[in-house]
Design a protein around this nucleic acid. Structure first.
Lengths: 212, 212
DNA sequence: AGAGTTTTATGCAAAATGGTACAAAATAAT
DNA sequence: ATTATTTTGTACCATTTTGCATAAAACTCT
């Protein structure tokens, strides 16, 4: 299939697509819908809601994303891809491990907070998780993403151990899981409205325990 | 207000309530609706669903529980009360702390599993949590229950420390939070469909870390 | 200018939803 | 037997919801 939106090597005119131009940008629409689903969940969000935040009418929504469930999954995929980039940067072993872990949790706190400071928790561990029983594809996606974070924590601690930052005797597997489950709890508690100072306190305690 | 359903001290006839007798039992209805909300969430559950599992028609549902949101809150309250009893028993300091912690997590695993083995996670950390942004009363209820479990873990570890089971130097506050956040993660992961052996493995690792 | 193509705007159908009204049923009291 | 009271059964309402159909708009190509 020939990509018809590839950038020309030179600025030579390319053949233009026929038909009326799209009035929406798919990525922008995904981000707008993300906020909706994040706060209301799938079942609590209507197509009228989606239409309003994206400024797209029904045919455009259906043409761009398929039915409601498919739109939700596209939003989930988009979220996971976005946060993966952010976490990859946060896990980079370019600072001491204690600072590195703290940075990961601060990245989470940043993601889970709305611009106005209201905590929504993790899109995945609320909006997606509630639908895990209903839709096994979503459950699998959530579980895979959780495992990805597990691996990242274990890897970061392994790098730290090899660099001499952690004791050679430290049980990296266990500490990695403790770090990862703490990350889950940050999501849960922020959605429940926990005070950020409280969240940061137990994060610091856990980082302290992990780093010895 | 006089209770008109109190059991007679003797089997002497008491004044009976007038009118047609109720065909439902409130507690049974709460339990039936719990399953629904647990799996489908509030927004994904309709009054027809509720009517079907309780065998109660609309007037009975409204008379017994008020509107849909009130019914949900009654179910949440009932769940929290039920699990509190189970956790109180599990936290009892009548076994070594390692066994005691394990018993707490096994209690959670038991609660979060359906009879057929499908994990639904915690009612609170899925069905209620998704509605935390929409309804601040629910958020407060969830947060308070989370704090209650935090305190229980810290208390159990303090008792163990005073009994000489844990080092006098152990940071009970931190270890208590690690135990409690692990408990949150059990709920999240079970809802996502994690294999129970995997759950039990990271639980055992964490218990090992906490008990030294 | 007209034809072809794609997208947008609008309307609509069928079903679902939360909640209310009212009559019938099932009891107690007289 | 009749009246009073409470609950159940049924119907209904107004609104919302998801998804589809169709005409008009906005572009390209000839």
């Amino acid at each position: 299939m020939v990509q018809n939106n590839s950038k020309p090597i030179a600025q030579a005119p390319r053949q233009k697509a026929r038909g009326r131009p799209k009035a929406y940008d798919r990525t922008t629409a995904l981000k707008s819908m993300r906020d909706l689903f994040w706060e209301q969940g799938y079942a609590g969000t209507s197509l009228d809601d989606m239409s309003a935040v994206t400024a797209m009418n029904r045919p455009s929504l259906y043409n761009a994303f398929g039915d409601k469930a498919s739109a939700f999954k596209a939003v989930l995929e988009d979220y996971v891809d976005d946060v993966r980039q952010m976490y990859m940067a946060a896990f980079a072993p370019d600072v001491p491990v204690r600072d590195g872990l703290t940075r990961v949790y601060e990245t989470a706190i940043h993601i889970y907070n709305r611009e106005d400071g209201v905590g929504r928790g993790c899109f995945m561990i609320s909006a997606a998780l509630i639908d895990s029983v209903r839709d096994r594809d979503i459950a699998a996606k959530v579980l895979e993403a959780l495992h990805e974070i597990d691996r990242a924590f274990r890897w970061r601690l392994k790098v730290a151990q090899q660099a001499g930052e952690l004791s050679p005797d430290a049980d990296i597997d266990t500490l990695g899981m403790v770090a990862s489950t703490t990350h889950n709890a940050v999501a849960v508690r922020m959605r429940a409205g926990e005070d950020l100072a409280v969240v940061r306190r137990f994060v610091a305690q856990t980082v302290g325990l992990i780093c010895g």
